[in-house]
Design a protein around this nucleic acid. Structure first.
Length: 508
RNA sequence: GGUAACGUGACCGAGUGGCUAGGUAGAGGUCUGCAAAACCUCCUACGGCGGUUCGAAUCCGCCCGUUACCUCCA
């Protein structure tokens, strides 16, 4: 079953074929590291983590690039045009890169907890100023950008006049954008030939800390330039997939495409543009003013007023996977509790696999021949059919909710078989092996859900020590020796002292 | 104001012109020292009003509501 993905560029699902099989180039817009990531920020990385994992499962060799934006995103409400990062740095009396480093580390920690594999390349915007200046120069050379008051702007009208399709991705029309500008007063508009033009390079004001020399004086790159420059550098002018949140579709990705097309190597950049939908909380968008803005660390620690308790990273991952990535998803306590139980059920399934797999050792796993006579499918065949579903649904534009539903169907059958030896005997070893392998592969390798141990090792140890003391008091020395030996295997030694029983790590 | 989505049972969410998704919650049952898990059964919904159709939750129109983008944002 071929993988199809919904391409925003064409507004339809398309069969996915890499430009240069087996290689796949994937670019995802990464975080702006000027504060902690919130729950909504986690959706994209999780979605594209599953996509990467699935592509790899299909045998593709994926180069996954996700940038770190540590420069160049202007504060919308700051008429000084001050950089967000710089503002955060000033407030805390820190070096801007110190702020960026701090939040980058925290971002990595949160995503690792969420089971997201690290990208293969994680380029920083501040480390690619040369490339961004180069791209700006390319666009200038083609006459599709102009200098104004020390800044360089992309000339949208000229670009479109020469055949460009600014607005193609987001379905916008330049004239409507102009008409709809309405009451908003945007800073620096008078420097531009048209309000729809956007900055490739901005002149730094004297107060600006983050600044780099350029052919046009000291300044910093525009809001959209880094993704074009870095995707080109690491994936080529044309690559396979570009991802990001729906809110980045316009203007960010629209501008990226324009920059790519206006470069010396014209291309839309990615062939497939994928957009994940947003997260709402109790039916409302997440926002600071509404007080439902939850950072990932608040979520994991349970310190958010919007939620009654802490939820684990895997609960959040499962929660996101319950919705298709193009649908909005609503977060609430009830929804999270449901997700947590569903997730645990899936994990208990992993343990069931071990039990069912015990009997397979040494068995012939050659698939039985297809039935020669028409008739109702055999039990083995039925199991096979169930096991085929999860991957089928994933190949349909990454339909994770249907894949999960299919996994639960499979799990139900496996549970029934585990409780019913007679029925289990009717299943061929090959079919059983296939079902077990599929379940594990889809759950852990592709969906990236891993067992999150809840039991505390120390409490379990305390429990064991309690049994030890009871056995000792009852002079049940066989039992005592048994417990000692078992703990020894775990690297724990029990020490009887005058004041009671203690434990220590074995020093052997 | 402009643009684009969405509105599904108690909750979260798939689906989509006729064939009950799934998870969670609730009710009953099997199993069981207790409990849990598991399994079985039940709860059968698609914002409102019109229209198209043999048949619509699914297509069309209008209305209501929500969200996103238009401005940094996943």
């Amino acid at each position: 079953m071929p993988l199809t993905l919904y391409n925003t560029l064409t507004r339809q699902k398309e069969a996915f074929e890499p430009l240069h099989p087996p290689l796949v180039g994937l670019y995802l817009c990464g975080p702006t590291v000027y504060n902690d990531a919130h729950l909504g920020n986690a959706r994209g990385p999780i979605v594209f983590d599953v996509l990467t994992r699935y592509l790899r499962h299909l045998g593709y060799q994926v180069r996954y690039v996700r940038n770190i934006t540590d420069v160049g995103h202007l504060e919308s409400d700051a008429d000084t045009g001050e950089d967000k990062l710089e503002k955060a740095a000033r407030a805390k009396q820190l070096e801007p890169m110190q702020v960026a480093q701090h939040y980058t580390v925290r971002y990595h920690q949160a995503l690792a907890a969420l089971g997201c594999l690290p990208p293969d390349i994680e380029p920083q915007a501040s480390g690619h100023i040369t490339e961004q200046i180069g791209l700006t120069q390319e666009i200038l050379n083609k006459g599709l950008a102009y200098e104004s008051a020390g800044s360089i702007y992309f000339d949208v009208n000229r670009y479109n006049a020469e055949g460009g399709q600014y607005g193609r991705l987001s379905g916008r029309v330049v004239e409507e954008l102009l008409a709809g500008a309405g009451p908003r007063d945007l800073a620096g508009q008078d420097e531009k030939r048209s309000p729809v033009d956007f900055a490739l390079w901005k002149k730094a004001s004297p107060a600006h800390i983050m600044r780099w020399p350029s052919p046009w004086g000291e300044g910093f790159p525009g809001w959209h330039l880094e993704c074009s420059a870095m995707s080109r550098k690491y994936l080529g002018a044309s690559f396979d997939i570009h991802g990001g949140g729906l809110d980045l579709m316009f203007p960010h990705h629209e501008c990226e495409i324009a920059q790519n097309e206006a470069s010396a190597t014209p291309s839309t950049g990615a062939r497939f543009w994928l957009h994940n939908n947003m997260l709402t909380v109790n039916g409302q968008k997440m926002s600071k003013s509404l007080g439902n803005f939850i950072t990932l660390s608040e979520f994991f620690q349970g310190s958010s007023a919007a939620l009654s308790q802490a939820y684990s990273p895997m609960t959040l991952r499962f929660f996101f996977l319950q919705a298709q990535y193009r649908s909005p998803i609503d977060l609430s306590d009830d929804a999270l509790q449901a997700a947590r139980k569903g997730y645990r059920k899936l994990m208990n399934g992993l343990r069931l696999l071990d039990k069912l797999g015990e009997g397979l050792a040494g068995q012939d796993l050659t698939p039985e021949p297809a039935p020669t006579q028409p008739g109702p499918p055999s039990a083995s065949q039925q199991l096979r059919n169930l096991a085929a579903k999860p991957l089928e649904f994933l190949s349909d534009d990454l339909n994770t909710p249907r894949a999960l539903a299919a996994l639960f169907d499979l799990l139900k059958r496996l549970n029934t078989l585990a409780a019913n030896p007679t029925a289990l005997a009717d299943i061929s070893p090959a079919a059983l092996h296939e079902a077990l392998t599929t379940y594990r592969t889809v759950v852990t390798d592709i969906l990236g859900l891993r067992d999150e141990p809840r039991a505390s090792a120390e409490e379990l140890l305390a429990l064991a020590l309690g049994f030890y003391q009871e056995a000792k008091a009852g002079k049940a020395y066989d039992k005592v020796d048994q417990i000692r030996a078992a703990l020894k295997e775990q690297g724990i030694v029990i020490k009887d002292t005058k004041t009671g029983v203690e434990w220590a790590y074995s020093e052997e």
